[in-house]
Simulated scan of single mutants.
Amino acid sequence: MSVTAVPLRPIAKGSVRRFWLGIVLVGACAATLSWAGVRQFGSTESGLRYQIIKPGEGPSPTRDDFALIGYKGTLPDGKVFDENPGAPMEIAGTVPGFAEAITLMRKGGRMRVWIPADKAYGASPPPGIPANSPLQFDIQLHEFKTRAEIMEAQQQQQLQRMLQQQMQSQQGESGAPMPDMAPQP
C-alpha cells in the first residue's frame, strides 16, 4: 500500500487575520442586535414585566395624575376580557400593576405588560376574570394631566357657569339680550 502525498498550498499572507477579523465582526454584530432587542424588554421589582413597543415623548405620569389610555386586556389563554381605545382614568384608581405600567410610559408611547396575579385583581376579580389570574395588557398613553391641572380646569368651568348664571339672571331682569361672552378664536 502506498501513500500519495498531496501538496498543500501555503495560506495566503493575511488570510488568517481576515478570518479572525470576520469572526470578531460577526460576534460584535450579534451582540449589538441582541442588546437592541433585549433593551426593549424589562421588569420591575414588583414582578411586572413589560415590552416597550413605542417609547413616546416627554415626562412620565405619576400615580396622582389622570390619563387618557387606550388598552386591551387579555387572559393567559388569549381571551380579551376588556378593551377601550380611549378611556379617561385616574391612575391611582386602577389595579397596582396597571398603575405601575402607566407610570413607566410617556405621552404617545405604547407598551405590552404582563401583570402578576398579586398586582392584578388577585383572589377577588370582577366577573369574567378567573381568581388569581395574571393579566396581559396592550396600553397606549394618549395624554395625561396632573391633579393640579384638572383642579384648575374644574375651577375655570365653575367660574364660567357662575358667570353664565349671573348673566342669565341679569338678562331676565332687564329683558334685553346679553352679549355672547364666549372666547373668540
Rank of each mutant, 00 (worst) to 15 (best):
A123T: 12
M105T: 04
F41L: 11
M111D: 01
K54G: 06
G56V: 09
S43Q: 09
T44M: 08
L135D: 02
A153Y: 05
Q40K: 10
V38G: 12
G108R: 00
V26M: 13
A153D: 13
P88Y: 08
G97H: 02
I91S: 06
I23D: 02
I69E: 01
P88G: 06
P59S: 04
L104E: 12
I69H: 07
L33N: 09
F137W: 14
R9L: 13
A117I: 13
T32R: 11
F66C: 09
G70D: 02
K145P: 00
A36T: 05
Q40A: 06
G93P: 00
R110I: 11
G122Q: 10
Q140A: 10
G108F: 06
L25S: 11
P88A: 11
R63G: 07
R147C: 03
E143V: 11
F19Y: 15
K54N: 11
S15V: 07
P61A: 04
G58S: 03
P134L: 03
F81C: 10
P55N: 09
P59I: 02
R9N: 10
A101C: 08
A92K: 13
K13V: 12
F81W: 10
S133Y: 07
L48K: 01
E90K: 11
S133I: 06
D138Y: 06
E90W: 08
P61C: 06
P130D: 08
L8C: 13
P61E: 01
E57G: 01
F19D: 03
V95I: 14
A131S: 13
G73K: 02
T32E: 05
G27A: 15
R147T: 15
L135G: 10
V26P: 05
G42S: 07
A67M: 13
D64F: 14
W114S: 07
E143H: 14
L21G: 15
A31F: 15
A120Q: 04
R112F: 03
I150N: 07
S34D: 10
L25F: 06
A67H: 05
P10V: 04
P59K: 01
E45Y: 00
L48D: 09
T32N: 08
P134T: 02
W20E: 14
E149K: 10
G42N: 04
V95C: 05
R112W: 04
A131V: 12
A123R: 15
